[in-house]
Amino acid sequence: MFTGIVEELGELVRRDDTGGDSALVAIRGPVVSSDARHGDSISVNGVCLTVVETDGETFTADVMGETFRRTSLGALRPGDPVNLERAATLGSRLGGHLVQGHVDGVAEIVGRERAEQWETVTFGLPADLARYVVQKGSITVDGVSLTVAGLTAQTFSVGLIPTTLAATTLGRKGVGEPVNLEVDVLAKYVERLLTTGGRLPVDGLEAVA
């Protein structure tokens, strides 16, 4: 579990194909790697990856083909920046919102509008995710917890403060570039409960919620 508060702007160092459509990626991030251990979870552009090895400043992780197909990680090249966050602990401050690191879809940046102190960025909104996005609600974009500032049937927009622009990939990406989206998991659970009449299937049986 994560909070969507990026700890560090890291860098993809290399990608080693391991056969089939999977790969081992090496990511430089001195902050998140400083106390990382084998098996720990680190969010990379909003994707929860499991640490395989570390060397103090860099960690490696296995990425399956399914992850490449369903996220924007497959488009990364060595030298590209990435947003990094270590998994939250029970004692962590919840500065953003509850983020699982399970990407729901990939969208594109469709517009950027600069103001004096901030920037409004607009993203395409996949049709199958539109019902989970609400005005002033939370959404995760490339691992960054953001508040929806504007919403249409096909797009949503957010306001980025100078800190977010400087400390995350969202300040560097241009129109047409892909981003990972994760909607608020609470919305999905509410939908599930409402559409099943409060009864959730469990291993072929039903349990009353």
Rank of each mutant, 00 (worst) to 15 (best):
F2P: 06
E8Q: 04
E8R: 03
G10Q: 01
E11P: 01
R14T: 12
G20L: 03
G20V: 04
S22L: 04
L24S: 03
I27W: 00
V31Y: 06
S33N: 00
S34D: 01
D35H: 07
D35S: 14
V51R: 07
E53D: 15
T54Y: 08
G65E: 11
F68S: 07
R69G: 08
L73I: 10
G74L: 08
A75K: 09
R77N: 13
P78Q: 13
N83D: 14
N83M: 03
L84K: 07
A88K: 05
G91L: 13
G96Q: 12
V99G: 06
V103N: 05
D104T: 02
V110R: 12
G111E: 10
R112F: 09
R112K: 09
E116C: 13
F123Q: 07
F123P: 00
D128M: 07
Q135T: 14
Q135R: 15
K136I: 09
G137R: 02
I139C: 01
G143N: 05
L146N: 06
T147C: 09
V148Y: 00
L151G: 02
T155L: 11
F156S: 05
F156Y: 10
S157Y: 12
V158N: 05
T168Y: 12
K173N: 05
V179Q: 05
E182K: 00
E182H: 03
V185L: 12
K188C: 00
Y189E: 07
R192V: 10
R192A: 11
L193M: 12
L193A: 11
T195R: 15
T196K: 07
G198P: 09
R199V: 11
R199P: 03
L200E: 03
L205F: 13
